[in-house]
């Protein structure tokens, strides 16, 4: 892996991974069919695991592009779920 690839993947894992997990927490908090506080904690439980998995993903796929791509895609899905589920 070139230094550029490593840097890119690291950013994908760190920034992208954090964004992904935040969106996951937000989406699950508003969309899960359970009392609010339960949905929130469920979202948090999943979010931390996803963040770690994002890092695993970023450093196992064939290119840095794919690393970003996968993380961005899943983030968009969670973002959409959040927008669908959020009350206002």
């Amino acid at each position: 892996m070139t230094p550029r690839s490593i840097t890119s993947r690291t950013l994908a894992a760190a920034l992208g991974g954090y964004a992904l997990s935040a969106l996951c927490a937000m989406a699950l908090a508003v969309i899960l069919p359970m009392p609010r506080n339960e949905a929130v904690i469920t979202g948090i439980l999943v979010a931390f695991l996803l963040c770690a998995c994002a890092a695993i993903w970023a450093f196992s796929v064939r290119s840095a592009w794919r690393a970003w791509g996968g993380i961005a895609l899943v983030s968009l899905v969670f973002g959409a779920l959040y927008l669908i589920g959020s009350p206002s």
């Binding site: 997990s21 929130v40 009350p87």
Partner: peptide
């Protein structure tokens, strides 16, 4: 988890705006 409020408050704010 013990620092969830600091690390991941977004879910809380999303459900309790």
């Amino acid at each position: 988890l013990l620092f969830m409020t600091m690390l991941m408050p977004w879910g809380i704010d999303a459900a309790y705006p």
